[in-house]
């Protein structure tokens, strides 16, 4: 089913998602939306791994494993980032990037 679609189209799709994430990382000023942009970037990267595995090396599963590792790391990163965001909100009352200007404990 997927053989009818050239690999370039899937890669163009995933690179669009990647640069969408980068654009969001630059223009947004809320910590949670920054986290969402990072999730978009990681998602695009894991699509790339899986697609390369499927089209170029279908007898092996290395790309699949790396996509699994990317998803695991994304989960760990999201958990820590959200804990930090909640703590910042509790201390400063805001999660805008400009308001988080002090690194003091």
């Amino acid at each position: 089913m997927i053989q009818e679609i050239p690999i370039t189209h899937v890669l163009v799709l995933s690179s669009f998602l990647f640069f969408c994430g980068i654009c969001g990382f630059i223009i947004r000023r809320n910590l949670i939306t920054l986290l969402m942009a990072v999730e978009l970037i990681l998602n695009a990267v894991s699509i790339n791994f899986v697609v390369f595995n499927k089209y170029l090396f279908p007898h092996q599963m290395e790309g699949l494993f790396f996509a699994l590792f990317v998803i695991g790391i994304a989960a760990a990163e999201a958990a820590v980032a959200i804990a930090l965001i909640i703590n910042v909100y509790r201390r400063l009352g805001s999660i805008q990037v400009e308001d988080v200007a002090e690194m003091k404990y």
Binding site: M36, A74, A75, A79, I82, I86, I95
Partner: peptide
């Protein structure tokens, strides 16, 4: 992850 993000949005 999305459920975690939604929770943190509702909290903050």
């Amino acid at each position: 992850i999305v459920v975690l993000i939604v929770f943190s949005i509702l909290l903050t």
